[in-house]
């Protein structure tokens, strides 16, 4: 009998990276469904193309750098592709999405060491890149895009999103209910707060993420916009600020990206607060109405430093030094 000698522990849970990514995709499904309802089938096609492009790029990087890990099977590239598509308007040309995907996977993720090694969120990095060259493709929205063809060019019926209206210090015309269910202009995956909250509940239930980063992020945005409101209704301004634009999508799905966010509980709170504060600052003082992308990308750079700066209490050492 040939006995295998290996180090303890000799049993492992059946948790895998693939299962975690699958849970994230499941959590994104409600927002996908909402996007198809509000923006038409082009939203689905664009998302699928983005996911496929990311997987293809990841596979190429795996081959080029001779990584043994199964980078296609772990589904992480699919998540990146879906998130990048979700952060773009439905009218965005496919080739722009594909360039964003390539930048996200090859430069932001692959060249710095691949899965888990990247400092910046690949989807947001890809979005920031295409925004640099083709800002119109990223920031021009079509409200009635159900008519947008799944293939071929799209006539952009320029219409303003709630955030664009709010950048003029005016409350949007859409009702709060429309904001909540997503019957508004905006990026593919960001409009339906309800769907995003359902996804959040799934991620919490499955233990994929903790509540800390999303709660701190949304909390900071809410408190700041309540205090520094514009117009004459602070509460309404706050609610439109939280539900308009990418705060919910960013707080639940982007800022919680494992590789680019802190793991220490206290650092997660600080990180979430930082994202929220930066989002509001960029929205109020930046040249674009939206601030989520750059807020999270900036905080990405602090993720490891925050972990280091806020160490976990050592077992047996009480706060204040007692027992030391």
């Amino acid at each position: 009998m040939n006995l295998t000698v290996s180090a303890a522990p000799h049993i492992r849970s059946n948790e895998t990276t693939r299962k975690i990514m699958l849970d994230v995709l499941i959590a994104l499904a409600p927002a996908m469904i909402a996007a198809v309802i509000f923006f038409g089938v082009r939203a689905l096609v664009l998302t699928a193309i983005s996911a496929a492009a990311c997987v293809a790029c990841d596979a190429l990087m795996g081959l080029a750098l001779r990584r043994k890990a199964d980078c296609v099977g772990d589904l992480s590239a699919v998540v990146t592709g879906v998130l990048l598509a979700f952060s773009l308007p439905v009218s965005c040309p496919y080739w722009v999405v594909i360039i964003g995907d390539a930048f996200a996977i090859i430069v932001v993720k692959g060249l710095v060491g691949g899965l888990g090694q990247n400092v910046f969120n690949p989807a947001l990095g890809g979005r920031a890149f295409v925004m640099l060259f083709w800002p119109a493709a990223v920031t021009r929205f079509s409200l009635d895009a159900v008519s947008a063809a799944a293939f071929g060019t799209v006539d952009i019926v320029a219409s303003s999103t709630p955030l664009q209206t709010m950048s003029r210090s005016v409350l949007p015309e859409a009702s709060l209910l429309d904001m909540f269910i997503g019957n508004i202009g905006g990026c593919i995956g960001e409009v339906c707060t309800l769907a995003l909250l359902i996804g959040f509940a799934w991620l919490l239930y499955r233990g994929v993420i903790s509540w800390r980063i999303p709660a701190a992020y949304v909390g900071a945005v809410a408190v700041l916009t309540l205090i520094f409101y514009r117009g004459d209704n602070a509460l309404a301004w706050m609610l439109y600020s939280v539900m308009g634009g990418g705060v919910m999508l960013g707080a639940i799905f982007m800022a919680t990206d494992y590789a680019t966010s802190p793991t220490v509980p206290a650092a997660q709170i600080a990180y979430g607060l930082g994202c929220g504060v930066l989002t509001v600052v960029i929205r109020y003082f930046g040249i674009f109405p939206e601030g989520v992308t750059y807020a999270i990308l900036i905080m990405n750079a602090f993720a490891w430093a925050l972990d280091k700066a806020m160490p976990v209490r050592r077992f047996g050492v009480m706060k204040g030094g007692a027992g030391k």
Binding site: S6, A69, D74, L115, G116, Y258, T263, V264, V312, R314
Partner: peptide, 29 residues
């Protein structure tokens, strides 16, 4: 069944190791 070792194990920084450490350590770091 022996516990299979991954050929090229990758840390995705999920932090689960730290959340289960009964000594409050940070295994990922």
């Amino acid at each position: 069944k022996a516990c299979d070792a991954a050929a090229d194990p990758v840390c995705i920084r999920c932090g689960k190791c730290a959340s289960v450490c009964p000594m409050y350590l940070q295994p990922l770091y």
